[in-house]
Nucleic acid binder design. Structure first.
Length: 114
DNA sequence: CCATTGACGCAGG
DNA sequence: ACCTGCGCCAATG
């Protein structure tokens, strides 16, 4: 079982997104200290061990869209999980104005130890 | 070692 | 709103 140090930073950052809020891939990369590596966030999420319970469904594209192809199984699952926590999903996308997570940096610094 | 691959982002047109 | 190209870079084969 190989270990993924960079991916772990991503996982822990995503774990801090509150229920009912969403973040973007780029935002998570920045907060995790990996600016410009939005693509890697998606990769890391696929590697996340299930027992960690990473709320991957709270991560969206910079325009609020669900990254999976519209209509795909994954897209439906993500939309479902979001609606379960009262996040509105219309046309495969979320209104970021309304649901974007605006973390308190002090708290973030406390919760993430890097 | 070299090439390809992404659950991306952004600037243009 | 839709499309195209380019930058990005760890991981994979």
């Amino acid at each position: 079982m190989p270990t993924h140090p960079l991916a772990e930073r991503i996982w822990h950052t995503v774990l801090v997104i509150p229920k009912g809020k969403v973040a973007t891939y780029g935002q998570i990369a920045d907060l995790a200290g990996l600016p410009g590596r939005a693509r890697y966030v998606s990769k890391a999420l696929t590697l996340a061990p299930p027992d960690l319970q990473v709320p991957w469904h709270r991560v969206l594209r910079s325009n609020g869209q669900i990254a999976f192809i519209a209509g795909s199984e994954n897209a439906h699952l993500q939309a479902h999980l979001l609606r379960e926590e009262v996040v509105e999903v219309l046309k495969n996308k979320v209104n970021l104005k309304q649901y974007i997570w605006q973390p308190d940096l002090g708290e973030l610094l406390f919760k993430l130890k890097f």
